[in-house]
Structure formats: structure tokens, C-alpha cells
């Protein structure tokens, strides 16, 4: 199980959003840390195959990211998402399940399992418009898991979660990360420390660090903050 990102780039006119990123990921949870605007979402979208790169490739066990077979093993939670107005939590998940080509009978079963997993069973038939931010986020996580993905890409998954939901999420991630590749992006350092095995720090479109963070010389937090101070000095 290997995700290979090879010299991936995205350029909008003169602006380079993602600059020739190369990395190989195996099973585990990877934290993508970076400020807003550092190019994290752009990178994640290219990894998912929903945004075309201007250079480079993304392959999972040899399957290119623009193929249907790639999307079949993918689970994605975007930073921001909506829902069709009258949908209940169950309606939403069933709708996405159909898009993931899951047959109806199987879909009903999985939807029930996932609602249980993210703690939304008791509001399964309630309309999403009545949900809190944290509940909506949990629903988003559930939809990403519908097709038992081997590659799970989560863009700011902890945003809006209260402490109890964060703990639940941490446990869920722990069990999932043992058997598939999870990439989660965030701008919160403590999330990365608690949730991921390895960290990739992104700044101005490139990785300034990737691997296991060694706390002995400097804490991750300090290093991360120091990167921002540099920016301030330049302004």
C-alpha cells in the first residue's frame, strides 16, 4: 500500500500554489501542517484527483489519481461542504453511497454502522440543517468512510469539533490508520502531535519538513511558530 506523489505542482498564472512536492507514503496517519494559504487544500485536492496538477503525478499502488479505480479506494472530507436542503443524515449518506457505487442493501447496512461509529445514530433521520458544526463534521467523516477507503484524505477534520468529539475522532483515527493511509491537514500544531505518526510541514507550496518530529532539539510548536516569525520580519 503506497501513495507516490512525484514532483506535484500547481501554478495559477504567476502564482505557484504547490511547488514540485515529492513524497512516498505507506500505512499510517500523516499530518499536513501549514498556515492557511500555504497550499494545503490545493495539495489535498490534487492528491484526490479532483484538481488537475500543472505538473507531476499522484499514484496509489500504481493507479493514477484521475482514474475511477483510484476514486474507488479514496475517502475525502473537504474543508467546507454543504448538503442538499431537505436531507437528513441518513439521506445524505445514502446519496453519497450511491455515488460510491455501493448497492442499496449494502449501503443501508454501512450507513447504519457509520452513523453508530460517529455517534449520530439517534439523529439519523433529523435534517442536517438542525445539526451543530461538530455534528456536520462527524457526518462528513462518516461519508468519507463509506467505501472502506485505503486512502483517506481529511482537510481540517477537527475544525468545529468539541473536546469530546476530538477524543472520539482521535480514537477512530488510531484504528483506521493501522490499515490504510490517512492524510489530514490542519493549522493546529497540537492536532498533528496527537493524531499523526509523521508530519509534513508546508510553507509557500513546499515541504520544509517531512518525517517523524524529534522533540529533543525543539518542540514542533516552537519550530512552526518560528517559521511565521520569519515571515513577519520580512514584512
Amino acid at each position: 500500500m503506497e501513495l507516490v506523489i512525484d514532483r506535484l505542482s500547481k501554478q495559477y498564472g504567476a502564482k505557484i500554489a504547490v511547488d514540485r512536492i515529492s513524497v512516498k507514503l505507506n500505512k499510517g496517519v500523516y499530518g499536513l501542517l501549514g498556515a492557511n494559504g500555504a497550499g494545503k487544500s490545493t495539495l489535498m485536492r490534487m492528491i484526490c484527483g479532483i484538481l488537475k496538477p500543472t505538473g507531476g503525478t499522484v499514484t496509489f499502488d500504481g493507479i493514477d489519481s484521475d482514474k475511477e479505480a483510484f476514486r474507488a479506494i479514496l475517502g475525502y472530507l473537504p474543508q467546507d461542504f454543504g448538503y442538499y436542503p431537505e436531507f437528513s443524515a441518513k439521506d445524505f449518506l445514502l446519496y453519497i453511497a450511491a455515488l460510491k457505487a455501493i448497492p442499496k442493501k449494502e449501503a443501508k447496512k454501512r450507513v447504519a454502522e457509520l452513523l453508530e461509529l460517529v455517534g449520530l445514530s439517534d439523529v439519523a433521520n433529523k435534517k442536517i440543517k438542525t445539526f451543530s458544526g461538530g455534528m456536520k463534521q462527524r457526518l462528513g467523516i462518516a461519508q468519507a468512510l463509506l467505501n472502506r477507503p485505503k486512502l483517506l484524505v481529511l482537510d481540517e477534520p477537527t475544525a468545529g469539533l468539541d473536546p469530546k468529539e476530538r477524543v472520539r475522532f482521535r480514537n477512530l483515527l488510531g484504528s483506521i490508520g493501522k490499515d490504510c493511509i490517512v492524510i489530514l491537514s490542519t493549522h493546529i500544531v497540537s492536532d498533528v502531535e496527537h493524531l499523526s505518526d509523521e508530519v509534513m510541514i508546508m510553507k509557500d507550496g513546499s515541504f520544509i519538513f517531512q518525517g517523524k518530529w524529534n522533540d529533543s532539539e525543539m518542540s514542533l510548536e516552537d519550530f512552526y511558530l518560528s517559521q511565521f516569525e520569519e515571515d513577519e520580519d520580512h514584512e
Binding site: 454502522e113 453508530e116 461509529l117 480514537n171 488510531g174 484504528s175 493501522k178
Partner: peptide
């Protein structure tokens, strides 16, 4: 038992 944590799996 599908969605149990790794150790209970």
C-alpha cells in the same frame, strides 16, 4: 465487529 479498535479487532 468491523469497526472496533485495532486491539479488540
Amino acid at each position: 465487529y468491523e469497526f472496533t479498535s485495532s486491539e479488540t479487532t
